[in-house]
Structures are given as C-alpha cells and as structure tokens.
C-alpha cells in the first residue's frame, strides 16, 4: 500500500510539472483523454493507504459504494464539459481545482466504491459512460461552432472521434461481459 501511495504521489507530481502539464494541455484530446484520466489514476493509487487508515470514515459515508461512485460521476462529467476545460486554461484557480478534484474527489471514491458495487452496478456505470461518450462524441464532431476558446475546430473534431472510439471499445467490453459466461471457465 505504501509503495502504491509513493508511486501515485510521484505520478501526481510528474503530471504537475509545468512542461508535462503544458504539453498535454496544448492538445485538446490529450488534455481530456490523457491528463484527466491519469490524474484519476494517480488518486486511485494514492487512495489505498487512506482506505486502510480510515476505514470507518469510508464505511460511514460510502457503505454501499453508491455515494462514492455518484461523486466520481459528477466530477468526471463536470470535466467533460467544454467550458470547464477552457476555464482550467484561463483561470489558475480552476486549474488548481482540476488537480485537486480529479485525484481526490474522483480517484479516491472510485477506489473505495468500485469493489463495493455489484456486477450489475459496475456494468450500469460502464453503460452510462458508453452512452455519454457517444453523445459527447456526436457533440464534438457535429458542432459547427468552436466550443472552446482555447482549441481549434480540428482539435474538437479529434476529441469527438476519441470519444467515439472509446465508446466503441466500451461496447466491445459490454458485449464480452454479457455474452461470455465466466463460470464456464473459472
């Protein structure tokens, strides 16, 4: 757990380094689909030790995983709105909020909630993301206006296709999850 925490922390610091942050934020798709998930991953790694140290806190507030996963969803959905990305680049305070909210309000609750959810609950979350990704993809691809002041139309088109391809991968996973019966093999 301690090693995981250290790796998570080092990863978090690495993502904060100005050259790294500048590079990934200079391209819209790497901003949303690389930096943001990696921030969540860093929080996910750091969370383990806290879950062990403060089990009662998490038990009290997140006994069945639903409050945690709801918080996770709110934070993630918030950060897929074009306006929020723009603000992160324009206001230093929002940029700081991004670096706090994604690891600590998305990565932490995800770690605590995911194993508490039932299989159906997990698949439901993935279905919600699949639908949302197709929707966001359609928005970014077919929107004729520039949605972010900081990014070009080609950037948002690329991000749109990124959403669509990720959604296709999630569909493939769902087909696998619903058609293959693991009890036949495990």
């Amino acid at each position: 757990m301690m090693t995981q925490f250290i790796y998570g922390l080092l990863f978090y610091i690495f993502l904060m380094l100005p050259p790294v942050a500048n590079l990934v934020e200079s391209i819209m798709i790497t901003h949303m689909h690389m930096q943001m998930p990696m921030l969540v991953v860093s929080g996910f790694l750091m969370a383990g030790i806290f879950l062990k140290r403060f089990p009662r806190f998490f038990e009290k507030w997140n006994s069945n995983g639903i409050p945690g996963i709801t918080l996770f969803m709110i934070v993630i959905i918030y950060w897929t709105i074009p306006r929020t990305m723009d603000e992160a680049l324009t206001y230093q305070a929002i940029e700081a909020w991004k670096f706090i909210s994604l690891p600590f309000l998305a990565g932490f609750p995800l770690r605590d909630s995911w194993k508490k959810l039932t299989k159906a609950g997990k698949n439901l979350i993935i279905i919600i993301f699949t639908v949302k990704y197709f929707g966001m993809g359609a928005l970014y691809i077919w929107s004729e206006d520039q949605l972010c002041n900081n990014y070009l139309v080609i950037d948002q088109l690329t991000l749109g296709w990124g959403f669509i391809t990720t959604a296709i991968c999630l569909v493939i996973y769902l087909v696998y999850a619903f058609t293959v019966d693991p009890t036949k093999y495990e």
Binding site: I27, I29, H33, T158, W161, T166
Partner: peptide
C-alpha cells in the same frame, strides 16, 4: 484508439 485517433484525424 487513444494513440491513433489524434494523428489519423489530422
């Protein structure tokens, strides 16, 4: 998908 969407779209 993550690796190829960006260059291919461009």
């Amino acid at each position: 998908a993550m690796a190829y969407v960006l260059p291919l779209t461009d």
